[in-house]
Design a protein around this nucleic acid. Sequence first.
DNA 1: CATGAATGAGCATTCATTCAT
DNA 2: GATGAATGAATGCTCATTCAT
Lengths: 207, 207, 207, 207
Amino acid sequence: MIRDTEQTGKRAQSKAANRQTILEAARAVFARLGVESATVRDIIRDTPLAAGTFYNYFKSKEEVFEALAVDSTTRFRPILAEVRSSAVDLETYIRAAYRAYFTFLSDENAEAIKLGTPHMALIGVRVDTPEMKAVVAEIRADLEARFDEAATGKVDTEYITAAAVGIAREMGDYMLKRRPVDVEAASATAADLFLSGVTSLGIQSKL
Amino acid sequence: MIRDTEQTGKRAQSKAANRQTILEAARAVFARLGVESATVRDIIRDTPLAAGTFYNYFKSKEEVFEALAVDSTTRFRPILAEVRSSAVDLETYIRAAYRAYFTFLSDENAEAIKLGTPHMALIGVRVDTPEMKAVVAEIRADLEARFDEAATGKVDTEYITAAAVGIAREMGDYMLKRRPVDVEAASATAADLFLSGVTSLGIQSKL
Amino acid sequence: MIRDTEQTGKRAQSKAANRQTILEAARAVFARLGVESATVRDIIRDTPLAAGTFYNYFKSKEEVFEALAVDSTTRFRPILAEVRSSAVDLETYIRAAYRAYFTFLSDENAEAIKLGTPHMALIGVRVDTPEMKAVVAEIRADLEARFDEAATGKVDTEYITAAAVGIAREMGDYMLKRRPVDVEAASATAADLFLSGVTSLGIQSKL
Amino acid sequence: MIRDTEQTGKRAQSKAANRQTILEAARAVFARLGVESATVRDIIRDTPLAAGTFYNYFKSKEEVFEALAVDSTTRFRPILAEVRSSAVDLETYIRAAYRAYFTFLSDENAEAIKLGTPHMALIGVRVDTPEMKAVVAEIRADLEARFDEAATGKVDTEYITAAAVGIAREMGDYMLKRRPVDVEAASATAADLFLSGVTSLGIQSKL
DNA sequence: CATGAATGAGCATTCATTCAT
DNA sequence: GATGAATGAATGCTCATTCAT
């Protein structure tokens, strides 16, 4: 057990840093054991903190997980916003968005990738938090904004969005399992397939 | 709580009936609480049986789950096989496969659909059992068998398969959440998008 | 599981033989797992009989053990009686008694000796049943009968008997652990030591 | 039930006190029910502590037992060492050793003697821990060291040691059952008998 | 605020025992 | 009598959570 009684270590420097300490430990533990199998004890054991301290910051393991998911999503959102504002049409948006997502996924799981692949793809995928739903809603809005008028009413944008997201999730899992992790290949394949699909569906980019 | 409605007495239930009772309770509990959170006690509590009885039939929660997953997959595989043998080309295969999957998904979750939707899409999705992996491998083989030679080496069939599966999974979730559950619409959209996508990727159906 | 539904096997031939079947299985199981660790289930599992049948013959594992101990002691008693009637004096009694005991011990544990030595020396040692106490009482009476009058009141025959028994028990354990199991050597050493001891204590054989 | 008589509150008990509380309860429970039959719950039930607390101190019942056995043997060993260094020859060693052992046995079981005698002679006898084996090995070495050269090869020191130990064990049991518990009588009888025995076996003390 | 020992509810699992067949 | 599935009490153990310090 790591102990830091003198309050001089990096970890315990600031009181508020404890929250961050717990979050980091939780991320590592979740990656190692899986969210469901992990226990609060596992998390605090990876921390110089005492068991009781956990409860000064979080009510339960679920709350940490939620915070972690929010955290990931929060960091992804500005990236997606940047993609949005830089995109000139549907194609550039889609290509940039897939690349951004796969890059993010790869970065988030960098440590797990180095170690092996247990419980990979933890963050950013397979998590149905309100924040993730909000991101999906943003993507849907982005798509709709870029579909030409002719498409309105003709296609079901919720399904199209689901398809885009499904491709990202599933391909993301496979990408993480492969060595080397090739973000470019995954991005290109996903974007090619999705773009061709929607185009042939009769949807044209607005711009 | 599942009860012996015919009032023939607990003992009169045949052995096989008890097994079925447990399986049904487990299916319900898994749908309600999620597989990981559910406990053996949760399952037997949903049963008129005693705690110990569970262990006359299954060694652990995982074994019930496995039985349930095998069961679902076992029932889906012949359906997919029928689709395979009836298909004359890539398009008919894809259309029939998506329809088959969405139909199956809808049927499997019929009860959950009626009740509400917590932990929906339990069966057939989000489940990485060996059986499910085998099904995915079958689909991949089906796709490869139907891609023309020109596609060989040009496309990454693992990624393409992942995309097909991802579309199915994600769209399946949305389909189950909508009322009415419209299998036809989901199938058509998924198939249209995927087929256009792969076709534009330069892949032609062999036949 | 061994099953013998046709009632033709040696095992199930006679109804009363079931008791014997259980006793034999119990002896083997106790030797393998130890009395405390063994369960009723372990015993019936080594039997072609059903769980419930056990309770037609014994109330509990302890009762079987008791029966087994009684059985052993019952078989040892006539041997000791023979020794008693053949002995002409203290020395011939002691020598014959130790030899008889070590021989019996070796025979009883023959199977365990062949297999290895788990939970050896089960029968005839370390067991404080009423029967064993009776045997000890017999030995004490035998000793007293052979001590000369001068010894009466001078020595504590209970302690002397305890010493004789203690030597037998402890040396018996060591004898069983050695290979080859040498009954003669153990008997001679035990008898020499005990006889010299009591003789020097001022006790002379009556005859 | 062991209680915190000083009324300082459970929390005020020092950690070490809880460990001691558990050890004492375990000693009592083992004496009452026997080591094998006793359960962890039996132990904590004899304690004002909660079930989980047990596991803050010991991993299992076996670990408590081990701690208890080590404890007893640890306390007996220096006593035996003192006997060894004070002894001038075989006779003084044997007499002092038996007296030391019977005294120790009487002290260890003082409480049980007062209460009654179920599962008596728990400590120091009938317990085949590594520590007890080490003590027996020490005794054997002590004996060999005190046997004259002429005895070497002629007698089996393992058997002789077994005899010495067997006498101690069995006579110890009887001693504890008698009232009053007479350590001197037991020691004298055991030593007389054993010494006469080995002497007549042709063994002379070295000194 | 931090600590970490104590808590006791809860879980998986085993097992002796019963009893309808 | 024999059967063996059902029973449910009991066990070892873990864990989230509390709270005195």
